[in-house]
Nucleic acid binder design. Structure first.
Lengths: 109, 109
DNA sequence: CGGTTAATTAGCTTGTTGGTAAATTACCCA
DNA sequence: TGGGTAATTTACCAACAAGCTAATTAACCG
C-alpha cells in the first residue's frame, strides 16, 4: 500500500476487524486483551491491527502498569471525513436528479 | 483484503492513483486513455485501478463505439461517508474538550 | 478485407498483508 | 527472587496487490 497519509488511513479502515476495534473504542478506552476478546484470532494478530490503526492516527496507546490502554483519536477519522466530504455535493446532486426523474415519471409525462 | 462492501470501498480509496482518478471524474466522464494520461503508468495498470473502483461502486463504465467512458458513482462514496459520519460526534466532542481546555488556560486558572 | 485505435486479459515478478507459534519484554506481587 | 499476567517481537508462511510486457478482443475506417 502507498504510504501517504490518506492511503494509510483508508487502508487501515479497509478491514472489518479494525473497524470493529474502532467501534468498540468509540465506547471508551480498552486494553489489548479486551479488544481481542471478541475475535477468533491470536493476540499478536490483534496487536498488529492496533499498530496499523496507530500509524493511521486513528488510535493512540498509553501505559498503565502492564496494560497498554488504547483510545480512539479524532485526527485520522477527521482527515478521512474531510476527503470524502469533497464528494458530498456530487452525490447529493445525483439524488436530486434521481428525485426529479421520479417526480417526472409520476406526473406521467 | 476482506471482501465485505465497506472493506472493498475503503480499500479502493487507499491508493493515491485511484483517488486522483475519482477527482478527475468529479469534473465529468472520461475515457480510459484520458484518465491514464497524467500517470507514469501503463494502460493495463490504469485499467486494473478502474476495475477496483468499479467493484467498489465508486465508478461505472459505459460503452460508446471503441471507448468505455467512466463516470463517478455516488453509491460507494456515500457508504464510506455514512460509516465515517458515525464517528463525527466523537471528534467534534474532542474538539469541544480541546476548546474548553484552551479557554481555561487563557483565563489563567 | 486489412489496418488502426481503445481497452482488456494473461502471465509473470516483486513487495506487502494477515495470520501463526515461540520467544521476549515489562510490570506486578508474594 | 521467582512466578504470573499483559503485550510485543521475531521468524515464518500463504495469499494478495500493483506493476510490467505481450497478446487479445472490439470497434471503427478505408
Amino acid at each position: 500500500m502507498a504510504d501517504d497519509r490518506l492511503s494509510v488511513i483508508f487502508g487501515a479502515l479497509a478491514d472489518p476487524t479494525r473497524r470493529a476495534i474502532l467501534a468498540r473504542l468509540a465506547q471508551g478506552p480498552a486494553s489489548v486483551n479486551e479488544l481481542a476478546e471478541p475475535f477468533a484470532m491470536t493476540l499478536p494478530a490483534v496487536s498488529k491491527h492496533l499498530k496499523v490503526l496507530e500509524r493511521a492516527g486513528l488510535i493512540s496507546r498509553g501505559r498503565e502498569a502492564q496494560w497498554r490502554p488504547c483510545k480512539l483519536e479524532a485526527e485520522g477519522l477527521q482527515e478521512a471525513s474531510e476527503w470524502v466530504d469533497r464528494y458530498r455535493q456530487f452525490w447529493e446532486s445525483s439524488y436530486d436528479k434521481l428525485d426529479a426523474h421520479l417526480k417526472n415519471m409520476m406526473k406521467g409525462t
